[in-house]
């Protein structure tokens, strides 16, 4: 597999602020890659570095083996779906989609045909004559997608593409984007702060914090084996146990992560705990319990008996579910 995008020791500073701080990264061709992190973690700046809107302060970027620094965005065969879609308000939907071919000098008839094909691809056939202002949020986002895809980019960048959509539409678009990416085989790089979105869509996820990459890996790996407290806490929710407690359970003095759903109520032989509170979530019930001064969150599947507040209970987990973390951060 060829490398589509490679960062080596890339930094981008804005004055004193290190928006991106020494990032090493390789994205493979045809990969669906997610950059996940809280706002201000540097993920969007990384996307803009690939697009060419930002230039690295230090370091080296390659796109399909070619040096990218100093190359303006209009000379990169990389296209972006913007967070606010950035549809040109003075152009019709068809002219928006045909903008790239128009700039490349494709004759009108040919580029209109290409635009219509791209609109069909995003399931908006026949919408070409409308104005962007007449479309719903979801439709605008599809137009933005068609406008990028019509150029057959080597890499497609998506900046929080689903952020502005409501929940139902978001889930539907996640499926569609995934299908589209598989069928086109184009490398997708998308930025999100929604860990659920990153886990469900991406082949691999990079978790960002303070301008650095905390961990890169497949979704299951990131979830099951977070390398640091930050990743454990940001990706899903987790009980983070301090080294003193972990020493008692696992014999190693290091921080560990214990997912709430891996804790079960035990009939006998478990560890004693007291129920502090509970809240009903629909598909599950979340208990807060106290175990020797350690506060834990426990997720009980729907249908399980929920003990009342103040009850003494016993809890247990598989030793392999207690994930001891390598990093101290």
């Amino acid at each position: 597999m060829q490398t589509a995008v490679a960062f080596s020791k890339v930094s981008r500073h804005f004055g004193q602020v290190r928006a991106v701080d020494g990032v090493d990264l390789e994205i493979g061709e045809g990969e669906f890659f997610a950059m996940l992190g809280p706002s201000g973690s540097g993920k969007t700046t990384c996307l803009r570095l690939i697009a060419g809107f930002e230039q690295p302060t230090f370091g080296h970027i390659e796109i399909f083996g070619e040096t990218a620094e100093g190359v303006p965005p209009y000379r990169r065969n990389v296209n972006t779906v913007f967070q606010d879609y950035a549809l040109f308000p003075h152009l019709s939907v068809a002219d928006n989609v045909a903008y790239g071919p128009m700039i490349r000098g494709v004759p009108r008839a040919a580029r209109m045909k290409a635009a219509e094909e791209a609109l069909e691809l995003v399931q908006l056939p026949g919408y070409g004559a409308r104005q962007p202002g007449q479309l719903s949020g979801g439709q605008r986002q599809r137009v933005a997608l068609a406008r990028a895809l019509v150029n057959k980019p080597k890499v497609l960048l998506l900046d929080e593409p689903l952020g502005a959509l409501d929940l139902k539409l978001r889930e539907q678009m996640q499926e569609e984007l995934k299908t589209l990416q598989r069928s086109l085989g184009i490398t997708f790089v998308f930025v999100t702060h929604d860990q659920g979105e990153a886990l469900s869509m991406a082949d691999r996820v990079a978790v960002f914090n303070h301008g650095r990459i905390m961990q890169v890996g497949a979704p299951e790996e990131i979830y099951r084996a977070p390398r640091s407290r930050f990743v454990a806490d940001f990706v899903g929710s987790s009980n983070i146990l301090p080294p003193e407690a972990v020493e008692r359970f696992a014999g190693r003095k290091a921080w560990a992560s214990l997912r709430p759903e891996s804790i079960r109520l035990a009939a006998t032989g478990g560890r004693a705990a007291t129920v502090l509170g509970h809240s009903y979530l629909g598909a599950a019930t979340r208990l807060t319990v106290d175990m020797d001064g350690q506060r834990l969150t426990v997720l009980l599947p729907a249908g399980a008996d929920v003990p009342a507040n103040g009850t003494r209970i016993e809890i247990e987990w598989k030793a392999s579910d207690l994930h001891v973390m390598e990093d101290d951060t």
Binding site: G52, Y74, R75, V78, T80, F88, Y99, I103, R147, N151
Partner: peptide, 20 residues
């Protein structure tokens, strides 16, 4: 982002000024 979108789609500074 309109200007960035135009550059992203291959238009240089002058083309962006003229078309967007």
């Amino acid at each position: 982002s309109l200007i960035e979108a135009s550059m992203d789609l291959g238009a240089d500074g002058f083309q962006t000024f003229r078309h967007v």
